[in-house]
Amino acid sequence: MKPQERIERMQNLLARGQTPEAWSDTLKSHGVHVSPRLVRSKARETGQFFQMGRLMLLTPEQVESLFDTRSAILAEGHRTGHALQ
């Protein structure tokens, strides 16, 4: 990856990435009640996050994939239950 591409990727991450706590608040404002702990654990489970030290950031696409991953698992019949328990 070229230096300019790295800079653009980092700028995008910093502009759009949010912590699990921020995503929990954002989702809650849309009527989806999930804890930061759940967001963090699903992100780790699927590998959909960026991390530096203790800081975890997720982009909108990564959060969307947390929903998609669970839906795909349910569609395949591997698990039953409520989405994002």
Rank of each mutant, 00 (worst) to 15 (best):
M1L: 15
K2N: 04
K2I: 06
P3E: 13
Q4W: 05
R6G: 05
R6S: 08
R6H: 13
R6A: 10
E8T: 13
R9P: 03
M10W: 10
M10Q: 05
Q11A: 09
N12I: 07
N12P: 01
N12T: 14
N12L: 08
L13E: 06
L13G: 03
L14P: 03
L14F: 06
Q18M: 14
T19Q: 02
P20W: 09
E21H: 13
A22H: 10
S24C: 13
L27I: 01
L27P: 00
L27W: 02
L27D: 02
S29H: 14
S29E: 12
G31L: 07
G31C: 04
H33P: 08
P36E: 05
L38T: 11
L38M: 11
R40H: 06
S41D: 10
S41K: 15
S41F: 14
S41G: 01
K42Q: 13
K42T: 07
A43T: 02
A43Q: 01
R44G: 04
R44D: 04
E45D: 13
T46C: 04
T46M: 04
G47A: 15
Q48E: 15
F50A: 08
M52G: 09
M52C: 11
G53F: 07
R54A: 14
M56G: 00
L58E: 03
L58R: 00
T59F: 02
P60M: 05
V63R: 01
V63M: 01
L66S: 02
D68K: 15
R70C: 02
S71H: 12
A72Y: 08
A72V: 09
I73Q: 02
I73P: 02
I73E: 04
I73L: 11
L74N: 02
A75M: 09
E76W: 13
G77L: 01
T80A: 05
G81H: 01
A83S: 06
A83Q: 12
A83T: 10
L84P: 03
